[in-house]
């Protein structure tokens, strides 16, 4: 590890980077930008989260390339490993099916946002270009005693107060999250009899919900029962399937069957009439 580090250190001290790093930058940088774009453009939150995780891993590689070994590892372990998983967890909790429709509801918001984002990027780029950074000291000297040791020395001396306060902040955040999401049960849970009585009192869905399937021709749980007019009744399938959008609709089939039946009977009646007429 130390040998590897020392060679990297000599590399990093240079004003220009090695060709390997350049290749790595251009390849991974492109992927990172694509991942970022996918994060904001993917329809489902899960996909966004995965794309973001990818971008973050690439950023971890860049940290390593820039001599921030500790941060690189932390980025992978804490950010990608813990925080993004937390994100995924919340996505699942909130409802994975809640696909975010990308249709814009606020008039002009998308164009304005794109314009602002683009303008901001251009401005930042112009600012960086304008700064004319010509000198890169490299981290060779700073990382000489080891990156982690260097950081630790700084954190526990120069930045010790900031460190302590940040720790307090973290604790506060943890407590705050608990306060926010904790729900006190102020009353006893209802038992089955009371729930039944309440249902009677409210007067809706007194009998059990209707069963799925249509006239016993389908008994799959994901097929909505048909109402007398041929339209499917959402109530007959379970809520989870409904939310996932995994309901199969057979109403068109049933209606066309009905139409065919009527046509057949009409033809038959017509034939009977013809027979009567011929008699």
């Amino acid at each position: 590890m130390s040998a590897l580090a020392s060679t990297a250190v000599t590399d990093l001290a240079a004003y220009t980077t090695s060709t390997g790093e350049a290749v790595q930058f251009w390849v991974l940088g492109t992927v990172a930008v694509i991942g970022a774009l996918c994060t904001i453009l993917m329809k489902k939150a899960v996909h966004s989260a995965l794309c973001l995780a990818g971008t973050m891993i690439i950023l971890a590689v860049f940290y390593l390339a820039n001599g921030a070994y500790f941060l690189g590892i932390v980025q992978v372990v804490v950010y990608t490993g813990a925080i993004m998983m937390l994100f995924l967890f919340v996505v699942m909790l909130v409802g994975v099916t809640a696909a975010d429709s990308l249709k814009e509801t606020i008039k002009g918001q998308r164009w304005l946002a794109a314009l602002c984002g683009l303008g901001f990027a251009v401005l930042l780029t112009a600012g960086i270009g304008n700064a004319a950074i010509t000198e890169f000291n490299g981290l060779g000297a700073a990382n000489a005693g080891g990156n982690v040791e260097g950081l630790a020395a700084l954190i526990f001396t120069k930045y010790v107060f900031a460190f302590e306060i940040t720790g307090a902040l973290l604790i506060t955040a943890a407590v705050g999250a608990m306060v926010l999401t904790h729900r006190e049960r102020t009353e006893r849970a209802l038992n089955q009899r009371e729930m039944a009585e309440r249902r009677v009192r409210e007067g809706k869905h007194l009998p059990p919900l209707p069963a799925p399937g249509v006239y016993a021709r389908h008994n799959a749980v994901d097929i909505a029962g048909l109402l007398p007019d041929g339209t499917p009744s959402e109530l007959t399938v379970m809520q989870t399937l409904r939310q996932r959008g995994q309901i199969r609709d057979v109403s068109g089939e049933a209606l066309s069957d009905l139409a065919a039946l009527e046509q057949r009977s009409a033809e038959r009646l017509g034939r009977d009439r013809e027979q009567e007429a011929s008699k």
């Binding site: 918001q109 304005l112 946002a113 602002c116 901001f120 401005l123 600012g127 304008n130």
Partner: peptide, 23 residues
């Protein structure tokens, strides 16, 4: 309009204007 996103746009726009002014 009460949409936080609209306000955020104006914030970003304002920041952009500030950066432009600084430059």
């Amino acid at each position: 309009n009460g949409y936080a996103r609209s306000y955020a746009v104006s914030m970003l726009g304002g920041t952009a204007v500030l950066v432009a002014a600084t430059l």
